[in-house]
């Protein structure tokens, strides 16, 4: 098992993808947190329609402002970890060296959780340094509660879980490019539109919090948009919901991989 996990890490770090992703995640985290810190702490923030929350939520949001871009990139990483194997047919040599397919897929899952956590650290490096400096410039306490630490830790988990959603999606849609387009399209466009539309309906408002993006947001306990009737999940419920998505999709992916013929 250890050998297969090591192999998955090597797969990831032997193409140029990983440092491109690292730069993207770092920049997204730094820029979004600077922007968010500046925007939510301005004197007229509430009148301007900025999202609202208590000081802890504001700080949480500043440090996880880039998470939206971060988890989309991790979704892509998850898709690529299996999609490029199909595309370049390296799945053959993967399954030849690890013929037990459940083990091969578990290795991918463990490796992706690790890669998610690593990118989470890169992301935090950008968001916490830049965000904290911006907050201090604004005279806001950059570390109001120990709860912030929980948020930082959970943002690492969130990135790992999104990569597992990508892994399942990459198996569900074997065409790598289509999988990325569908995955990012759904998470970035369809889901926000759907949650905006449904939140005005009684029954809709009840399911909206269980959408993966909203669960992720609940997990890191950020600020919420003004004027919505939706009650978002608590941080632990959000974490469980996102973990359930990740578990369901990666379990589905493993099941499909075990059954299929590789040719």
């Amino acid at each position: 098992m250890g050998a297969a996990i090591k192999s998955e890490f090597r797969k990831f770090f032997t193409t140029r993808l990983w440092w491109g992703m690292a730069i993207g995640i770092f920049l997204a985290a730094a820029l979004f947190s600077a922007f968010f810190a500046y925007f939510t702490t301005s004197a007229t923030a509430t009148e301007e329609g900025a999202p609202t929350g208590d000081p802890v939520q504001i700080v949480n949001s500043v440090y996880t402002a880039g998470l939206g871009v971060g988890y989309l990139l991790m979704l892509t990483v998850g898709i690529l970890q299996i999609g490029s194997e199909y595309r370049h047919k390296t799945i053959t040599s993967t399954l030849l060296s690890t013929p037990n397919r459940v083990r091969a897929m578990l290795a991918k899952i463990v490796a992706l959780l690790g890669i998610g956590a690593l990118y989470g650290l890169v992301s935090l490096l950008g968001s916490v340094t830049v965000g904290a400096i911006t907050l201090m410039v604004r005279d806001v306490d950059p570390f109001p509660s120990i709860e912030v630490l929980r948020t930082l830790a959970l943002s690492l988990l969130a990135l790992g879980l999104w990569s597992l959603i990508g892994l399942g999606l990459g198996i569900l849609i074997p065409n790598m490019v289509a999988a990325i387009l569908v995955g990012v399209g759904v998470a970035w466009i369809v889901e926000p539109l759907l949650s905006f539309g449904l939140s005005n309906l009684d029954w809709g408002a009840k399911i909206v919090p269980y959408f993966p993006s909203n669960a992720t947001n609940a997990m890191v306990n950020g600020v919420t948009a003004q004027g919505t009737d939706v009650t978002f999940l608590s941080w632990w419920a959000g974490a469980l919901v996102l973990a359930a998505y990740a578990a369901a999709l990666s379990a589905f992916g493993t099941w499909r991989t075990v059954r299929q013929d590789v040719s």
């Binding site: 192999s7 090597r10 797969k11 032997t14 140029r16 370049h88 047919k89 053959t92 060296s97």
Partner: peptide
């Protein structure tokens, strides 16, 4: 098949990936 390589990975790294798994 002679085409089972990731085009962005060097041949040596391809072998290192397999070696790790084995």
């Amino acid at each position: 098949e002679a085409t089972n390589f990731h085009p962005g990975r060097s041949g040596r790294d391809h072998l290192r990936v397999i070696a790790a798994a084995g």
